[in-house]
C-alpha cells in the first residue's frame, strides 16, 4: 500500500450494532471522525455490519455527522465473528481506499482491527485517547496511554494507508443530531465466500447483574478496606442512589467479594466514566491504570496519604463505615428534593 499513499482519501469509522440497534460507541466515533474529516477537508463514512439494522438508526448516523453510511447486512453478520467481519472490512478498504479507519477499542474493535490491519498492510494504534491531524503532512496523530497510563505516546503512520486506530470508549462525547444534514446510505451485498467462519457463536450469557461497567457514566468502586463480603451491600446502596455501576479493585475480586467482570485496572477493565467514586481503594498504580482518565474522581479513604488522593478531584479522609450510610441517605434526600 505504501506506493499509492495519495490514492487514499476519506475518513471512515466502524459503527457497531447489537440486536440491530446502533451502539453508543458509534456516535463517539462520529465525534472523532467528523473532527478529523473537517481538518482534512474530506468526507466521513460510517461502515456497519449486521442483520436487519434499524433504518432510523442508520439515518441517525447521518444526522449525527456521517456523510455516507455503508452497510453490509446478512444473517451471518448479525453478531461479531472475526473472519466474516474482516473479509467485509477488507473488501471495503480495497474498494474505497480510505485514508483513515477508526473503530472503538471494544471487544469487537480490538479483535477485528488488528486482524484487518495485518492483511491490509496498515499501521494500527490501539486504544487512543486523542486523535489529531498533523497540519504539514496530513498524517493522523494518535495519542495513547502506555505502560499502565504512566506515559502517553504519540504515534503516526507516515507511509502506509489506511491509517488505522482504535479509540477508547467514553474518551469523547457522542455526536448529537444536527438539523438539515443529508447523506447517502449505501447497501452492499457480501458475497457468500466472505461469510465463512471457523468460529460459531452458540450462545450468549448476559452478566447477571447487567452492571454495564464499561458503559456507565457513574461508577462506584470498592476496595479491600470494605473488609468483608457482607459489607458490599453498603456499596450497592450507594450505587443505587447514584444510578451507578459497581467496580472493584483486584483485592476485592481475589477475595471473591465480587466477580472478575467488576475488576478495574491493569488486569481488569479500563474505564473512563464521568464520575468514579473510589471507596476504600488505596490507588495502586495497577488500579489507577484502569480509571485515571475518568472525568471526575472522588475518593474516600481513611489513610490521608493513600495514592488515590493524588488522582482525585475531591477526597474525604474518613472511615467508610461512618461515611457510607450518611452519604447514601443524603443523596437520596437531595434527589427527592
Amino acid at each position: 500500500m505504501t506506493k499509492n499513499k495519495h490514492k487514499h482519501s476519506g475518513v471512515w469509522i466502524l459503527a457497531e450494532q447489537a440486536d440491530g440497534r446502533v451502539q453508543r460507541i458509534s456516535y463517539e466515533l462520529l465525534t472523532r471522525g467528523r473532527d478529523l474529516a473537517d481538518k482534512r477537508g474530506t468526507d466521513l463514512t460510517a461502515m456497519i455490519f449486521g442483520n436487519d439494522i434499524n433504518a432510523e438508526d442508520l439515518q441517525e448516523l447521518i444526522n449525527c455527522g456521517a456523510d455516507r453510511v455503508v452497510t453490509m447486512e446478512e444473517a451471518k453478520l448479525e453478531h461479531f465473528l472475526v473472519e466474516p467481519y474482516a473479509a467485509c472490512m477488507l473488501k471495503i478498504i480495497e474498494d474505497y481506499q480510505p485514508e483513515i479507519v477508526i473503530a472503538g477499542a471494544t471487544s469487537t474493535g480490538r479483535t477485528l482491527m488488528p486482524y484487518v490491519a495485518i492483511k491490509a498492510n496498515a499501521g494500527l494504534t490501539a486504544d487512543c485517547t486523542v486523535l489529531d491531524i498533523e497540519e504539514e503532512t496530513g498524517n493522523l496523530l494518535q495519542t495513547r496511554p502506555a505502560i499502565g497510563g504512566n506515559i502517553l505516546a504519540t504515534i503516526k503512520t507516515p507511509q502506509h494507508r489506511p491509517q488505522m486506530a482504535t479509540v477508547r470508549p467514553h474518551s469523547t462525547k457522542p455526536a448529537v443530531k444536527q438539523d438539515g444534514r443529508t447523506g447517502e446510505i449505501v447497501r452492499l451485498k457480501a458475497p457468500a465466500k466472505y461469510l465463512k467462519s471457523r468460529i460459531n457463536r452458540v450462545d450468549f450469557i448476559p452478566d447477571e447483574s447487567e452492571h454495564g461497567l464499561q458503559d456507565a457514566d457513574v461508577v462506584v468502586a470498592v476496595g479491600r478496606g470494605i473488609k468483608k463480603s457482607e459489607n458490599i451491600s453498603l456499596i450497592k446502596s450507594l450505587a443505587k442512589e447514584l444510578d451507578a455501576a459497581i467496580g472493584a479493585s483486584r483485592d476485592v475480586v481475589d477475595r471473591g467479594w465480587l466477580s472478575y467482570p467488576y475488576q478495574v485496572g491493569l488486569s481488569g477493565k479500563t474505564i473512563s466514566p464521568k464520575l468514579y467514586l473510589a471507596v476504600a481503594i488505596s490507588g495502586a498504580i495497577q488500579h489507577l491504570a484502569g480509571m485515571q482518565t475518568s472525568e471526575t474522581i472522588v475518593a474516600i479513604n481513611s489513610d490521608p496519604d493513600a495514592q488515590i488522593f493524588n488522582v482525585a478531584d475531591f477526597g474525604i479522609v474518613a472511615d467508610v463505615f461512618q461515611i457510607l450510610p450518611v452519604l447514601s441517605e443524603r443523596i437520596k434526600q437531595a434527589r427527592s428534593e
Partner: peptide
C-alpha cells in the same frame, strides 16, 4: 517493517487539584 512510528513520549499532566477534607 513497522508501519507505525512513535513520535513523542510524554508524561500525562496531572491537572487534578484534590479538595481534601479530613473527617476522622
Amino acid at each position: 517493517g513497522s508501519p507505525t512510528r512513535v513520535v513523542r513520549i510524554f508524561r500525562p499532566k496531572v491537572v487534578r487539584q484534590c479538595e481534601k477534607i479530613t473527617a476522622m
